[in-house]
Design a protein around this nucleic acid. Structure first.
Lengths: 328, 328
DNA sequence: TTGTAAGCGTTATCAC
DNA sequence: GTGATAACGCTTACAA
């Protein structure tokens, strides 16, 4: 391990001078600078970031804490965050909580202990509920899921109106017997359910069903099967995230239900497959790239100016109308 | 920031004693231990991992370097790696190279400078070609893409025989005019093309076409369109990764080609959508969980015993026969 | 313009 | 059993 000392020795200067040359933040005689740079090149010296972090009391890393990177929404967010971080010379620690508050706490502690510069964080329900004061420990930007505290930067989707728009689209296209499947692991599901109900109310209708379930393909499948086998079969199914959509789609296919003729299907998040299946699925596309990028930029802002007042950015989804919700 | 000094002061002992209590690696009087632990709890002390890393000359982090975490294969690998690392108390730095050798080098340097304990690494073609000696700098496990050097641990798929099996499956089902789309960014595409050609040779056939293209949905789409519009239309399309499969599928749909009646389609990697589309796609499923886990375990082995002789683990894919390659 | 030296928070060595 | 202290590699007052 070649250190700054070796360079100093080789260049015949002090470590301070080497440091200054590298940081380029102090007047240095041209000739000295040259000698130092030569030694650096010669020895193939690379600064030790750990030492630098210890000294500076913070590292050029940010944490990304989400339930599961395999959820296509978070995959896209993760990539966008990494891109934005990379541009600023930061790197990203990936943390999956599996909606498990203990894992979440463990990771937040770890990130704190690693002196990360900040965290981009989609909290579990339990975290959201408890009014944590993690803010004090390190900069945070919350994404996707609202928390009570107004002291935190957040980047959220306008879930209520997105769900309202999506539901209204179904109603306008003549569907009347709507069932909703909502994820029970986050505020997102609740908000989307609010928009769903609001739209139905405007039409003076009640939902055929509205279930809060674990946001997984299997639960989406099972619940949809039950709906289809029940006495009051819906003519349209609203799902609040892409895993539930996948499960519902699978159930409709297995039950040989024609979509949308017998039952329509709509959901959230544009995925590789939502376009590819037959019929393609009508969804609210979230601006994942923008969410990830905005969150990262907000985080850098806060790192720079820890006391600036918290900002909440609310982005709009885009309704992509496809075959799965064709006019009746 | 409460440090070990504060704890020492509060407990009326030296920092050394606090350290020993926490490490639990030296005899300590029960009463002292208690006092220390009390102070730790009182002050809510958490060891600074940066300082620990500096002192120990390595950190409990591993790097994950892949082309793009959004590729479903790497998404799954990433999650598996994170799980295995988490179990050992390690965390994962996510690095996307976009098949860009400069980004790759930048990241490898960064990881080195961060003193990571090791790297799980799917190299670009350029890296594989150059016989790098990164091994010296930090432990490596190569995944997915073979490199020349036999001095590195690797976890690979038996690509040639997987492709051979997949192609033979087409031939056995009566398809004769086969076209192959292979990713040009990695050894994987080359190996899979070898298996493809080998199987055809066994049947004394030549492929209708065999293209090495950028492994992206768009290129898969464009190339397939060209194939379908060409004079010698294939009756089956072989794709070497899931992005190409998606592109090809889209093209077949847009061209209103009936699958598999007019043209069959097969590929690699089980994805959410490969099951969901109509017809579902016949694929070689890679054991992503096992690849990620094995790679991580190999890495930990090497971290523990840097001199043990390199190991290459070759895993088998599983042919999942679905509707897209039904018997003619 | 440059050097000296303190200090970031740990842990390991040595002494008692 | 416990305490001083040096060292990990870096940056930054403070001096010169």
């Amino acid at each position: 391990m070649t250190s700054i000392k070796d360079v100093a020795k080789a260049a015949g200067v002090s470590t301070a001078t080497v440091s200054r040359v590298l940081a380029n933040n102090a007047p240095i005689k041209a000739e000295t600078r040259e000698r130092v740079l030569e030694a650096v090149a010669q020895l193939n010296y690379r600064p030790n970031l750990i030492a630098r972090s210890l000294r500076a009391q913070k590292s050029a890393k940010i944490g990304l804490v989400v339930s599961d990177i395999r959820n296509p929404f978070f995959t896209a967010i993760g990539r966008a965050v990494e891109d934005a971080a990379y541009e600023q010379g930061y790197s990203v620690l990936m943390c999956n909580t599996d909606e498990n508050p203990e894992k979440e706490e463990l990771y937040l502690n770890l990130l704190h202990d690693e002196n990360v510069a900040g965290v981009i964080f989609s909290p579990t329900q339990q975290f959201s509920a408890a009014s944590h004061s993690y803010n004090a420990k390190m900069p945070f930007v919350i994404i996707d899921r609202a928390v009570e505290s107004k002291e935190t930067d957040m980047v959220l989707l306008d879930n209520v109106s997105a769900a309202y728009e999506l539901t209204t689209h179904l109603l306008e296209n003549g569907y009347r017997k709507l069932a909703g499947l909502f994820g029970d692991a986050s505020t997102t599901g609740q908000e989307r359910s609010r928009g769903f109900h609001k739209a139905l109310k405007d039409y003076q209708l009640n939902p055929v069903a509205a279930h809060f379930i674990s946001p997984r393909i299997k639960q989406g499948y099972d619940t949809t099967i039950a709906l289809l086998e029940g006495t009051n079969r819906p003519d349209a199914i609203f799902t609040s995230n892409s895993l539930l959509t996948a499960g519902a789609f699978q159930a409709l296919r297995d039950k040989k239900i024609s979509v949308p003729n017998e039952v329509a299907l709509v959901g959230f998040d544009e995925t590789t497959w939502s376009e590819l299946v037959d019929p393609p699925i009508t969804v609210i596309a979230q601006p994942t790239e923008e969410i990830g990028r905005t969150a990262t930029e907000l985080l850098f802002q806060r790192i720079q100016e820890p006391s600036r007042s918290p900002k909440t950015v609310i982005l709009k989804g885009t309704l992509l109308v496809k075959g799965s919700s064709k006019k009746k």
